[in-house]
């Protein structure tokens, strides 16, 4: 099974070879509430680690989705642009945002694993 890592900004990234699929966590979508709009980057866009990768808007507010790693956008999820509520319903599966070709795989390995992220989220309450 492909490995998954998490950020303190509540993004997840799943690595397949040198390409990472990025989305927001279930915790993040719960905090946002009903997602009504997403803005995705163009394919080929270069992303920096921690830089803005996409925008997600709920009824209340707009928030940024940050890239967990540096790299290049190779694919975006048109399904969430068409139906933003997919981000609420399937945040950690079909509600992914972008696929990124990693510049440096070590950046992935340095992120939190599932257990560490769970602990991190529990600490927020």
């Amino acid at each position: 099974m492909a490995e998954r890592r998490y950020t303190k900004d509540h993004e997840w990234i799943e690595l397949n070879g040198s390409v990472g699929t990025v989305g927001i966590t279930n915790y993040a979508q719960e905090q946002l509430g009903d997602v009504v709009f997403v803005e995705l980057p163009a394919s080929g866009k270069k992303l920096t680690k921690g830089g803005e990768a996409a925008v997600v808007e709920s009824v209340k507010a707009a928030s940024e989705v940050y890239s967990p790693v540096a790299g290049e956008v190779v694919e975006t999820n048109g399904a969430i642009a068409k139906d933003p509520s997919l981000v609420n319903r399937e945040a950690e599966t079909n509600g992914w945002f972008i696929k990124v070709k990693l510049a440096d795989i070590k950046e992935f390995q340095a992120l939190m694993d599932s257990a560490s992220y769970q602990k991190f989220v529990e600490g927020l309450h």
Binding site: D9, H10, A28, V56, A61, S63, E64, Y66, L124
Partner: peptide, 8 residues
Amino acid sequence: MGSTAADT
């Protein structure tokens, strides 16, 4: 993801 800071 940004702007999910908890308020006191």
